[in-house]
Amino acid sequence: MKMKLQDHMLVPKHEVLNKEEAEELLRSLGVKKEQLPKIKATDPIAKEIGAKVGDIVKITRESLTAGKSVAYRLVI
């Protein structure tokens, strides 16, 4: 059985957005891709979910204050 790094308790949920979702997100936030925080394509989790350079990764964090918060990172 291969274990998944994503199961680790420190790793929040990562998902790759598809093209439509990404465009919709950038429109609703009113920012350019490059203005998002980054995640490296060599990041172990990015590799595991198969994110490629230029993709946007949606991260659902367990926040201490808000309970659940969503963040986005651009794969570089």
């Binding site: 680790h8 420190l10 929040p12 201490l64």
Partner: peptide
């Protein structure tokens, strides 16, 4: 039980589990 095993070396967490895990580790 890997999922519940941690270290206090944040750089190691960054290398093994990525940037988001490192963020969580810094906060914790």
């Amino acid at each position: 039980d890997f999922a519940r095993t941690t270290t206090n070396n944040i750089y190691e967490i960054y290398e093994v589990l990525g940037i988001e895990a490192a963020r969580n580790a810094i906060i914790k």
